[in-house]
Write a protein that binds this DNA or RNA. Structure first.
Lengths: 250, 250
DNA sequence: TTAAATTTGTGCGTATGTATG
DNA sequence: ACATACATACGCACAAATTTA
């Protein structure tokens, strides 16, 4: 009936609030509403879309369920920083929505080093303290926003060309595959949290008061031989780790 | 235990440094050397044990490998803040987890509330937004040091007496069992990190600059029906989460 | 510390379109 | 054709939480 704005858009369902939710979702995905920013207030948005505030609220509730925004009474509706679910076992949840918007992580090589392992690396890789390792420092971003910093160690004896392979393949998995490690699995992850150093905070484009999730892990090949030992720092406002322990149940 | 273990102890291996390491380990475990405190300097300890400083350093190195202490040149040897490995698995039990580390957790009820679920709780428990829930606020401590705060929700329809049962049984697992929930398993854990609020920091006896690990999870009974939805804050300096993904089960 | 302004949360009532029987 | 039930949408008013001055 009262359709001052175009009802011509077939996207996002037939109901008005679904169309509005789709429009807001697109604005968030496109970066028009940046993560961490506040949406215009409900009255304004309702007016802008030409609907009653109740109708707009239904759209916002949908975005809340999907994890795109957080609504705080008295404060406003905020675009969620927490965008990425990182599955430690399998499974994804929030990312499936973003995958539709073409969400993809970009990983860049910050620095590379090769030398003798300092204590923990050798132990994690189960190699002798004398043998050499390749160290790769990388940063991952989503939509141009830094998400994580990784320091990864590889045994030089087997994976001497990791840095070049990574630069060529643009992916750790592809780089390992090109060096003969067809498949690898994660053994165990150890998770803790701390405040970042100024350098780390800078590389993550975040304040030093924003905690990072520290994940230490080891990847092994099909034979159970360690091929990668790494420590990843996740910006805790942007990444949420998921651990699935429920299996097929009745 | 008021005085440090002396060197007469025959336990802990045949080598002198192994005996000394065992003695120091016992002192740390007993709390004689408190987490976060500094050990006497190496010369003093060597003299106390009647060995050369080189011998003592071997013992300290062993403790370093085991994670009991951190050695900082020019600063001293520091007893590591209580680091408990908390395993996230299908059957996740606080007491069992700590028992493996030779620790015992005390859990106290801070507050109790019963009312209508606010949004997320109802959703996590898969009950209608109108039905009632029991909310239990608890704090867990190890060796008298607070390590975690939990807010747990239970459906009143099935578990109305949770607070009383917990006070009687002194354990969530036992309380649930006494109310007819024989076994339960963890579906999914979602892990994040943030800085604590002043109240939370106070309850954990930590500064507001010390991040907390935030773990959201749901426990279901044998039939897959949710019986507990909870959010636990772990003091990140004391707890490290372990996720095992190595084993292929089922 | 207090008060005002801003913003979301919630309740009431009304009306319309769409299934169902 | 009619009654019923339900989801959608609009309008107004006030409550509650938060921010700001």
């Amino acid at each position: 009936m009262s359709s001052p704005t175009s009802l011509d858009s077939p996207r996002g369902g037939t109901r008005r609030w679904e169309q509005i939710a789709a429009a807001l979702r697109a604005d968030i995905a496109s970066g028009h509403f940046a993560p961490g920013s506040r949406l215009p207030n409900e009255s304004l948005l309702a007016e802008r879309f030409g609907v009653n505030r109740h109708t707009l609220r239904q759209a916002v509730q949908a975005l809340t369920r999907e994890g795109f925004v957080n609504v705080r009474q008295g404060s406003g509706t905020w675009v969620r920083e927490l965008v990425l679910d990182y599955a430690l076992q399998k499974r994804t949840r929030l990312s499936e929505n973003l995958a539709e918007a073409g969400e993809r992580a970009e990983r860049e090589l910050l620095a590379q080093e090769s030398g003798r392992p300092a204590g923990p690396w050798a132990q994690a890789l189960k190699i002798s303290a004398g043998s050499r390792i390749e160290l790769l420092y990388t940063r991952s971003s989503v939509r141009g926003r830094p998400i994580s910093l990784s320091t990864a160690a590889y045994p030089s004896a087997r994976l001497a060309g990791m840095a070049e392979a990574f630069l060529r393949e643009r992916s750790i998995t592809a780089a390992l595959r090109s060096l003969g490690v067809g498949d690898y699995t994660r053994l165990r992850s150890s998770i803790s949290a701390r405040l970042p150093t100024p350098d780390e905070a800078d590389a993550l484009a975040r304040p030093v008061t924003q905690p990072v999730l520290v994940v230490n892990y080891t990847n092994v090949d099909a034979q159970g031989v360690p091929v990668e030992a790494a420590c990843t720092l996740f910006a805790a406002d942007a990444v949420q780790l998921q651990v699935d322990t429920g299996e097929a149940l009745a």
